[in-house]
Design a binder for these strands. Sequence first.
DNA 1: CTGTTAGCGCTTTCAC
DNA 2: GTGAAAGCGCTAACAG
Lengths: 339, 339
Amino acid sequence: MVKMSDVAKRANVSTATVSRVLSKEGYVSEETRNKVLEAIDILGYTPNRLASNFRKSSSHTVLAIIPDITNPFFSEVVKGLEKVAAERGYHVLLGDTGNSLHVERDLMELVREQVADGVILATARVTNEEIEKLGRGLPIVVACEYFDGISIPTVSIDNVVAAREATQYLIDCGHRRIAFISGRFNIVLNRDRIRGYRQALEYNGLHVHEGLIQEGDWTMESGMNAMSRILAMDQLPTAVFAASDEMAVGALKSLKAKGLRVPDDMSVMGFDDISLSEMVEPELSTVQQPKRELGELAIRMLLNIIEGKKLERTQVILSHRLVIRGSTAPPRSAHEGGR
Amino acid sequence: MVKMSDVAKRANVSTATVSRVLSKEGYVSEETRNKVLEAIDILGYTPNRLASNFRKSSSHTVLAIIPDITNPFFSEVVKGLEKVAAERGYHVLLGDTGNSLHVERDLMELVREQVADGVILATARVTNEEIEKLGRGLPIVVACEYFDGISIPTVSIDNVVAAREATQYLIDCGHRRIAFISGRFNIVLNRDRIRGYRQALEYNGLHVHEGLIQEGDWTMESGMNAMSRILAMDQLPTAVFAASDEMAVGALKSLKAKGLRVPDDMSVMGFDDISLSEMVEPELSTVQQPKRELGELAIRMLLNIIEGKKLERTQVILSHRLVIRGSTAPPRSAHEGGR
DNA sequence: CTGTTAGCGCTTTCAC
DNA sequence: GTGAAAGCGCTAACAG
């Protein structure tokens, strides 16, 4: 492996000079620069970034900790991360926790070990306090999730408001009995969505039936199962709001299997607006999150922290948007003139 | 930042000893080990992996070059990569090329720069010869795609046979006029699928109508458009085989929009068996690829190369499987007793 | 079993 | 503008 000193020797300069032309910092005369460049070319020199990183004690790498890369929501976020990381000369190390708290904690270590300069934490399993503790000193930004009164930078949508609006939309359609298919109860982001759902019902003077809130785990299968449980009740809702599009699609399938029609017999609302929602029939009404932007902004903030720039804002809320497609409509009873 | 020499001092030993207890290599007496461990604990020492990597000139990182992390097929493959990488103490650097040949070439540089110890190249845009050249010397394995007579290790299914079988299945159903929605023509993996399609037709003495082969770009939209083009022809096929599930779903949508029923009016076959294929209605018949395993095996091979172990086999073909679901059936003319 | 020592390849003062 | 030299924190011979 040819190294800098080889280039220096060949060009009759010192390694300091070679380093200077490579880093484009400090003055080097046009003439020397050309000599060096030529030597590099002839010898086919490639700088050893490992050595450079070590010396500068910066890996130019950020770690993306995500629960599951297979989840289309997160792959969109990661795509955003990757894009601006590349633009700014950073690399992204992928840490897929498989939803394990343990793995999440382990991965954080990598920053202390200097393997990464900072962390993007998407949907934290660790607690508020733990993040604060872990984050002390190391560059970190939490993406997709908002923590109240936390000192760690955060980028997300307002899940409470988004869920409230979606629920309100169903209420405005005339639905009075609305089920909620939830993600895991222990996830903050999901609890926010439940809260929004409750708020909308309460605001409209509707009773919150605990039995209508069924827990899933974001997957389609769990959505199917949750819907089946709901369909087994003796008083059926006329609409169901799922905390993820996959679960909403599961609900769709379960409904079809039981011979119920969407939206005629039951309205279905999803969350996230992943591409899947336009691929099913009927297309899913859902809450659109700016996935790519979430990732882009999160990493911009992180890189700014790493590079010592001050952030103007440490908690950023991006805007969501209700997307109404074919899976929601007024309840049949409303069509028929009430009951 | 507390370093190894601090620990050494505190434990009254040399850094060599500390290094030994950390690496678990070489003999250290139980007593000294405990002293060291205690010192580490008290001081809150974390080894600097950047320094260690530099010294050992190994980053313990592999680079995954993929065209698009947002594509569910690749995210599954990456999931597999990540899993065994983590098991074996490696990290995976994500390189999303966005289908750009240029970016693909640039990323390869990272290995020469020692940022990564090796590369997994999923669906190469670069040519056969270029891979050979680039790969000379650096650990690399090509995943998902098979190159004839290449010296670089490869893990994939047999796309030719898989496509042939899928086409044969449609023929066996009674279809005689079968369209093919292709991915980009310049991609090897896709050309293999076209070849399989042609082989099946020819083997059964059916004419290959060039107009029935329409190019898409793997996305749902491109599948819709390709299907629309096919539907504009004056003699319609009775079945369509798409080179990806997303494109097949696009075909489904286009068909529905035109009021045609699947599989009654037209059979649709996909490729990949991503989860989407079970989410649409009717569920998609498709060719299942062992995505996760593809990733797992590819990285196993790569790590073996990196660690200097010999590979038993350098070109591995994993098995695919035809999955028949609701989107394929005999053509209506067959139902009605021929025409 | 443990310590001494010599770097890994690069960057960065500090002189000149 | 350029060079000399001192390490960054760790590992790995090599002695002992």
